[in-house]
Write a protein that binds this DNA or RNA. Structure first.
Length: 909
DNA sequence: CATCCGACACTGC
DNA sequence: GCAGTGTCGGATG
């Protein structure tokens, strides 16, 4: 269940008559417990309560109190030994009138009327595993608002089938934005009189919804008509005339109004009942945008950027700089004045703005700085110098664009209330000012300069204080500072839609022949770089970490560097997290690209490092880009991908199945080979694959079980969308890619946990087939193994190759073939061979421990560690005659060698 | 023919 | 749900 569903269930529960016996179970059901779980609790099997209540292990201890005894009952719950023993997270006591609860971990308490439980459901969200971010917990109104609007939107679509069409959808979205504005306006005093809008609809419309549309149209009309000074507007009934002139923007266009049924009218009124005063334009906006999108509904803004992540972009982009200028100004009035001038000129542009939360946060933070300026100048703010027209956005979805415009207006009003005053804010708000410049469209196709025209500061503005000088161009013209930010969509090449591929082509074709492996998000970086070309600025986006790893680096970054940009700041990989119920599974980075001569900052977790330059691998050091190559740079063994079945599982049998088959059909024994992928390589396990030579095909097909598997493979490959699978459909007994020679080999897992200090590699005899989940060097001398499992090689792989999350991913073309190795003498090779053998022997001494067990950094046996130390020492002495002090030194040496070796090669060509 | 990646995908707690 | 850790095969070169 997501938070919206929980809110609905809890609100419903608190409105029903209180049933003392049922309450604990209904409560647990509202938080998404399954029927079966509740049945078991009810039967007493899993109910661990020792005070006659209901206690769910690891969760909550609930007791129903005698009337007026809630506080005492809560105390009993707290004192109960079972509460602690069963690790309850919450205790809750209620008598149906009053409710007391405590979150035991934090000691936070809740005390409210029972009927008010719905408004406090956020307190209990950890019960459903939704706990990480305080924002939702503290602002349940955002969820409730989303939930109510959700119902209204769906019902309106039901009542007005024609409004669902693509050309009418925009009008419905605009209509919803108007409704939200009205709800907000009636709760904040923008409209005179409490609940003016909702109560007008309530009293003026029939319960069956029949005339709701007419009433709303009348109200829209009024809000779009300027009243003659102080007088009534002619032709409007008094109930409509009570509504103020709001203005063009929101109410100008004639979008009509959908028809209402009894149900949709009721939902409209229920939405109006909420107190919209405290909604957060950032959180609410991102949740609400899912309302208009069937696919996203229920996901609740899975891709919405949390405020901490937005700050990761905005702070280093320009807010920290503003704050620093504020510090420098101290109480110097002139300097403070200049800073305020600067604030009034900055432009913030989010070309993937969604519901506008980057823009909203930027606006609020800028207002906070302005407030501090006024405080230090000892002046009262009467009108902010920061205008919403300084904020620009592009958004592809019409509803989100609509919400972005509205969210900015709400943010402006809330800031006016906070920094100027309640009454003044009300006086200022109507008629509505121009809001942000939000364009609905595809950011990769429309002209950014048209959306956010780079204007220069006028002479008049300059006289008022002049720009800070930081952004002066050489020619002396003074452009406004423009900061580009956002969180554009990510999509790897395999999952890009046809439209997205076409977008990619439109951007990359002029730069590259091979660009198709780039992530979709890289388009925004190129677009931003093109926009910044010839002027000063920085653009920073949240992105998937894969554009700064592996093969994508060599495709994307040379383009950006050539356009005159460098990495201005960056945050290294962090896990995507927001308060959506099901987070997107992705590891992110933040990268700012720009052309300002300022110190570069690299943020790693909570640490910041200042540097002269940041590499596209998000490390500090010389800017070197490693390109994949098909053969080794150094005289080391050839390495390939492992054997790829593309069999839908049909070639693979576990040990037990294979043995029972061979027991029944002994002639099939020679059709099997031991099969090793990443998992078997590291964690052991007993798997076999069918390895059928052409001249064994008759024997294989004759066996019913195996024959069946072969025909399954054929069917699967025919069905597949993949070319290689199709092409190999008529040889369904063979792997689609099979470098297996029958000789021995060294294999490295293609993925490995970043916890390990050494790559999981092993030596296999010819009767083992290594899968495409590992890279293999066939018939390779053992000293190659010594290199593969060295610290030196891991440092290289960790920097150069791609990652899965933040785990190592091994690649022969990127990591092995590019690895610089000095010329090895026969003695060197003999020594390394000896080291490799010692490592294998040390492992054997711990048979049958797996590599995963042996290489757990906490459990690694001392003899194995000693063998690796010896190996590292021997190898590193060959490089520099001593051991390296750390990985920084290792990488420095490797990059230096790489640069030398690749430029020499180029010269030779 | 050969490979790199996944707004990932499981598994186990 | 979350932490830990690597499947599988498509799309692309």
């Amino acid at each position: 269940m997501n938070a919206v569903e929980i809110e609905e269930a809890v609100s419903d529960l608190s409105q029903e008559p209180f049933d003392a016996a049922e309450f604990p179970f209904s409560f647990l059901a509202a938080f998404g417990n399954k029927e079966a779980t509740i049945k078991r609790l009810r039967s007493g099997n899993t109910n661990k309560s020792d005070v006659g209540g209901v206690l769910q292990r690891n969760n909550i201890h609930i007791a129903v109190a005698e009337p007026g005894q809630t506080v005492e009952t809560l105390a009993r719950l707290k004192a109960s030994p079972q509460t602690e023993r069963q690790k309850a997270k919450f205790i809750l006591a209620t008598d149906g009138a009053q409710l007391e609860a405590e979150e035991l971990g934090s000691g936070e308490v809740l005390s409210c009327r029972y009927g008010d439980l719905g408004n406090n459901f956020g307190f209990f969200l950890p019960l459903a595993g939704i706990s990480t971010v305080a924002e939702v917990k503290n602002n349940p109104i955002d969820i409730k608002a989303t939930s109510r609007l959700n119902r209204l939107y769906v019902q309106l679509l039901k009542d007005n089938a024609d409004w669902g069409s693509p050309d009418k959808r925009g009008d419905l979205n605009r209509f919803m934005a108007r409704m939200i504005f009205c709800f907000f306006a009636e709760d904040t005093g923008i409209f005179q009189g409490d609940d003016l809008f909702t109560s007008t609809v309530q009293t003026m419309t029939e319960a069956d919804g029949s005339n709701t549309r007419d009433v709303l149209l009348r109200l829209f009309d009024a809000m779009n008509t300027r009243a003659p000074d102080g007088a009534a507007r002619p032709g409007f009934p008094s109930w409509a005339d009570r509504f103020p002139y709001v203005n063009g923007g929101l109410f100008a266009d004639d979008i009509g109004c959908p028809t209402f049924s009894r149900t949709s009218r009721a939902y409209l009124l229920r939405a109006g009942e909420l107190d919209w005063k405290t909604i957060n334009p950032d959180i609410f906006g991102s949740m609400i945008q899912a309302v208009a999108d069937e696919d996203e509904r229920g996901e609740l803004g899975m891709h919405y950027t949390s405020v901490p992540n937005i700050q990761k972009v905005l702070d280093p982009l320009f807010l920290d700089d503003l704050r620093e200028q504020l510090e420098q100004a101290g109480t110097n009035k002139r300097m403070l004045f200049n800073l305020r001038q600067r604030l009034s000129r900055i432009r913030v542009f989010d070309p993937a703005c969604g519901s506008g939360n980057f823009l909203v946060i930027a606006y609020i933070r800028m207002r906070e700085i302005e407030d501090e300026i006024m405080r230090r100048r000892g002046e009262a703010l009467t009108r902010s110098a920061i205008s919403l027209t300084q904020f620009f956005g592009i958004e592809i979805k019409s509803f989100a664009a609509e919400i972005a415009r509205l969210s900015l207006l709400i943010a402006e009003f809330q800031c006016d209330v906070r920094f100027i005053g309640q009454a003044e804010a009300r006086a200022l708000v109507l008629p509505l000012h121009a809001t942000g410049n939000i364009r609905q469209g595809n950011a990769l196709r429309i002209d950014w300069e048209e959306v956010c025209p780079p204007a220069t500061v006028s002479a008049e503005e300059r006289d008022l204080g002049g720009p800070t000088g930081r952004l002066n161009l050489e020619g002396g013209s003074e452009e406004r500072e423009i900061y580009i930010c956002g969180n554009p969509p990510y999509q790897g090449s395999v999952n890009q839609s046809q439209a997205q591929k076409a977008d990619m082509e439109s951007i990359f074709k002029k730069y590259l022949k091979t660009y198709k492996d780039l992530d979709y998000v890289s388009s925004w970086f190129v677009r931003a770089a093109e926009y910044l070309k010839g002027r000063s600025g920085v653009a920073a986006f949240v992105s998937t970490n894969s554009i700064c790893q592996g093969e994508q680096v060599a495709m994307l970054w040379p383009i950006l560097f050539k356009l005159g940009l460098e990495i201005d700041f960056a945050h290294t990989s962090f896990l995507w997290k927001n308060n959506a119920s099901n987070n997107a599974g992705v590891t992110c980075i933040v990268v700012g690209i720009g052309n300002l001569t300022r110190q570069k900052l690299l943020f790693e977790g909570s640490e910041v490092r200042a540097a002269l330059g940041i590499t596209p691998y998000l490390t500090i050091g010389e800017r070197v880009i490693v390109r994949k190559q098909t053969s080794p740079l150094s005289p080391i063994a050839k390495m390939q991908s492992g054997n790829k079945p593309t069999d839908n599982g049909n070639f693979i049998l576990d040990g037990e199945d294979k043995r029972s088959l061979v027991r029944s059909f002994p002639e099939t024994e020679r059709l099997f080979r031991r099969f090793v992928g990443s998992r078997e390589l590291t964690q052991g396990g007993d798997r076999y694959c069918l390895w059928i030579k052409d001249n064994d095909l008759a024997v294989a097909s004759a066996n019913p079980e195996i024959g069946n598997r072969i025909s399954n493979v054929r069917a699967f490959r025919l069905e597949s969308r993949g070319k290689q699978a199709n092409e190999n459909a008529e040889t369904p007994h063979r792997f689609v890619f099979s470098p297996h020679t029958g000789g021995s080999c060294i294999a490295v897992s293609n993925v490995s946990s970043e916890r390990r200090e050494y790559l999981p590699a092993n030596y296999f005899s010819g009767d083992t087939v290594v899968s495409n989940l590992a890279s293999v060097a066939y018939d390779a001398p053992l000293w190659n193994f010594s290199i593969i499992v060295s610290k030196l090689h891991l440092a290289w792989i960790a920097t150069i190759c791609g990652k899965l999350k933040t785990d190592y991913r091994y690649s022969n073309t990127l990591g092995w073939n590019t690895f610089p190795v000095p010329k090895l003498t026969a003695t060197d090779k003999a020594r390394l061979t000896r080291c490799a053998a010692d490592i294998l022997l040390a492992r054997e001494a711990h048979f049958p421990a797996t590599i995963a067990e042996l290489y757990d950094p906490e459990m690694m046996p001392t003899d194995l560690r000693a063998a690796h130390d010896c190996n590292d020492e021997t190898l590193e002495r060959i490089y520099i005659g001593r051991r390296f002090r750390n990985d920084t030194e290792r990488l420095e040496k490797l990059f230096e060698m790489y640069t030398k070796m690749t430029t020499k090669k180029e010269r030779a060509n």
